[in-house]
């Protein structure tokens, strides 16, 4: 059972009212019964934008299944370095308790002397809830994904490196990467490996289904890395197969055009009936004509 009971601005009243109403119901539930979970993560996306995401959830201390998202809570995102706080932006948690901020690819970050970016998410608290804060230290990673067909072998090349202030590339070591393909509902993992000396290559499977133009999208993902956070890169390639639907529903009960027999039966029925109507009306005209003749002869 998921209920939204926390609200930031006016949500203290809301919370109190709700808790009061809760207290009227069979179970007396208070905010103290919930342990608040404030988790923060960052994802560097394929277009070099960076997603900052906070998940703010209240978890029942006794019933693990009972989770309540904290919604409408204002989260501030900062870039901190050398005691200097730069506000990157603010976002409010959604009904699911998630606050997201997308930073443009042109966003400049202050780093420490080791090249780490300190990203901090902060909830400043309310009357009912305590303040929460979490920071992440990540280094900016450049992930390149290239797809090439070498001697009929479809190959995926992944390169990962960092850039220093002078623009010198430093290949990364021992970083796990997952290769997946975009499916209808989610990404389907097809390979995984570890980047050594800044690169790795994979041989792609044959006969992967694509869209109607035989295209499919390949993803390279570095997930939950201690040094770089989440980094995602993607490429669309025309290597797929497309299985045409050979049977097209024609003249079925559910298709646009009805089954042929239906047209035939209906036409026969209608033509038969309406032809009889026309025949009847024709005979009525005959009766009328004869009547006129009789009338004329009587007049004469």
């Amino acid at each position: 059972m998921q209920r939204n009971i926390f609200k930031n601005t006016s949500f203290t009243c809301f919370l109190l009212a709700l808790l009061f109403s809760f207290s009227l119901v069979a179970q007396e539930t208070t905010v103290d019964d919930y342990k608040l979970s404030f988790s923060f993560k960052t994802v560097k996306k394929f277009d070099n934008t960076r997603l900052l995401e906070v998940s703010f959830i209240g978890k029942n201390r006794e019933d693990r299944k009972d989770k309540i998202p904290v919604f409408d809570a204002e989260i501030k995102f900062f870039n901190i370095a050398n005691d200097e706080e730069i506000l990157l932006g603010t976002a409010k948690t959604s009904n699911e308790g998630v606050a997201q901020l997308i930073l443009s690819e042109k966003q400049k970050y202050i780093t420490d002397e080791d090249g780490y970016i300190n990203l901090t998410a902060r909830f400043e608290g309310s009357d009912a809830l305590d303040a929460e804060e979490e920071e992440i230290l990540v280094r900016d990673l450049i992930l390149e994904l290239n797809l090439e067909e070498i001697d009929s072998v479809k190959t995926i090349f992944v390169k990962a490196f960092t850039l220093d202030s002078l623009g010198v590339k430093t290949p990364v070591e021992e970083v796990d990467v997952i290769i997946s393909i975009e499916g209808m509902l989610s990404k389907m993992k097809i390979k995984e490996g570890t980047i050594e000396n800044g690169e790795i290559e994979f041989e792609l499977l044959q006969n992967i289904p694509g869209d109607k133009d035989k295209n499919f999208t390949v993803y390279a993902q570095i997930l939950d890395n201690d040094e770089f956070g989440d980094v995602i890169q993607k490429q669309t390639v025309n290597w797929g197969t497309f299985n045409k639907i050979n049977t097209i529903d024609e003249n079925k009960l559910w298709s646009e055009a009805a089954p042929i027999w239906m047209y035939i039966v209906l036409t026969i029925l209608l033509v038969g009936v309406w032809a009889n109507y026309i025949y009847t009306v024709y005979n009525l005209f005959k009766i009328k004509k004869e009547g006129k003749k009789l009338e004329l002869s009587q007049e004469e």
Partner: peptide
Amino acid sequence: IGYQDTTEQRETLHKITKTMSAMIIALAIV
């Protein structure tokens, strides 16, 4: 419509009424 109850008119009318009555039974069922 100029119906004078002549034998010919009566027969024509009887014929089409009978056909229509059969048609009406079939139509009612359908």
